[in-house]
Write a protein that binds this DNA or RNA. Sequence first.
DNA 1: AGTCAAAATGGTTGCGCTATCATTTTATCT
DNA 2: AGATAAAATGATAGCGCAACCATTTTGACT
Lengths: 333, 333
Amino acid sequence: MNKKPNLKDVAKVAGVSAITVSRVLSNPDKVSEKLRAKVEQAVHEIGYIRNHAASALASRRSGVIAVIIPSLSNIVFNDVLQGIYSAVKQHHLQVVLGDCHYSPLEEEKLIATLLSQSPEGFILTGTDQTDYARKLLKQSGIPIVQLMELSDSPIDMNIGFSHFNAGVDITNHLLQKGYRKLGFLGARMDTRTQQRLAGFKKAIADFKQPCQSYVVTTTQSSSIRLGGQLLQAVMAESQGQCDAIFCCNDDLALGALFETKRMNLKVPSDIAICGFNDLEASALVEPAITSVASPRFEMGQQAVELLMTASGQDKTHKPPVDIGYRIVERAST
Amino acid sequence: MNKKPNLKDVAKVAGVSAITVSRVLSNPDKVSEKLRAKVEQAVHEIGYIRNHAASALASRRSGVIAVIIPSLSNIVFNDVLQGIYSAVKQHHLQVVLGDCHYSPLEEEKLIATLLSQSPEGFILTGTDQTDYARKLLKQSGIPIVQLMELSDSPIDMNIGFSHFNAGVDITNHLLQKGYRKLGFLGARMDTRTQQRLAGFKKAIADFKQPCQSYVVTTTQSSSIRLGGQLLQAVMAESQGQCDAIFCCNDDLALGALFETKRMNLKVPSDIAICGFNDLEASALVEPAITSVASPRFEMGQQAVELLMTASGQDKTHKPPVDIGYRIVERAST
DNA sequence: AGTCAAAATGGTTGCGCTATCATTTTATCT
DNA sequence: AGATAAAATGATAGCGCAACCATTTTGACT
């Protein structure tokens, strides 16, 4: 295996200088038609591929953006990721991705690792980074976007929506429908889930009429199966009184719905169910599940656009972008 | 914003030479306890982060592996990815990921782009790469793993299972259960789906007794909703005769199952349903759906291990690794 | 044809790090 | 203590590319 061809090899084959080859690759329109064709032919012929490390080192542009999500398995972040990848393609960038498993400490390590790639932008999920992580990020000087939630004190830029408000709204929705014994099913209990729960509690506290609430949470990670278990738990805790549940996500809601069939509970007459995130399945089960939809794909796209329009972190305060959410009312409530 | 600190800056603060700092970072045990502590302190103090491009250029090791999957949204590849990320973490590698949207041409472009990162290994999905893509990959000299399917002529290494055999087995399962009017619902129709369909046809052709088959396929991408539509299509085509369906994946199977409720068909007495991939939901719906399970997470992990144990592409033929599959029989059949 | 500006091309240098080899310090033994 | 090996540290060079500036070529105009 003869070693990888480099710029000089291409230059030799094409009969031009190395720098011309470089230009054909990065500024094709600065090179005459004739040479360009010759060089492109040579590149293809010997299968030349530019050495990214050398290019990044010399040009001080890595063409990379860093992304950290809390979980690869959660479809929510998957949607955001797709938006990110779709936008990144337009800009001819590469993504380096890290999964911090909802741990700020793991996130800190990942930030350090990913910063070593000299990314031109950084996308983070949520707002609870460690102090050292924030220091590293600020010092890097690159534009940063925090996703999903809205923050009063973002590191740099911020796009998301208020999980607290969404929690309030969906709870009010249940109250307006006449339900008075509301359960909250929560898993994982990351900051966004906590904000939804806070919204749930606030709506109940502010409600003018007497009503009950039952909160069942676990730090286990969310799954459909867990939804069934939590439904049982909340029915036990409420001694069968609970007549509506707000599940912190649609996986739990689906699991709870499936469980109602086994428990012989009618939805929504015996018990109402609403979820969060509006997964495809929620719209197609019987009865369809009320949920909270948000434009996740677009959020990912816009995060990249924000990075690209920003020229490093400037000190000017950039207002968070509220991308909104929407309550999708369905048969389950 | 004073510019990013480099090795020399750390060296100055720690009162040692630059090369010693480099060694602390890459070979901590080659450095005395005393110096190491001093250097680590300095690194942390000034928030130094190694420049990956320079490191990769000088050491000719990028610490990166490249991965291309056909779809980010398909949970199947998500599972594989998780396996890959989990293994990669052990080896202190970074992943650069591409989504080729099931297109060999897009894949070819991605391969060229990702090779520019000088990855130390390459993980691809499936076996239908373009000729130029194969040329580039071979020329790179790095170890390569093709995932998911088994191939007679892998580029280098290969891990997966036989989708054809799985198709045969699941079809025989339906035949053994006494169903004789079998439908196949297929979406996307990528190579693996085609192999499953081929298995379906083979099992029917080999069956000793008379039986019918109805094949409904579309190149649309798969979704739960589409499963419902395809069920209607197959019932129309079979004039209501079809008594069992093999869905090329569990999304379609779930959609078909939900649709049976609207069509007032009883599962499995009026119609049996089986899927493929064994998603969590399949086990929890009523009735639970028979499916084909495979160890996707492990496949991802093992792919990375294969890369790491390989020392570049050697010419010796490496036998494909058959990771197997398992038919999970449930109430829907 | 001669002049000048603009476009196209090339030569040199350095990006920040690590491989390699050279040197110094420390440990081990007789 | 002296000799030798082993461990620790340092100096130098070069990885492959693009920025920068110098030079050549081309085209447009009088």
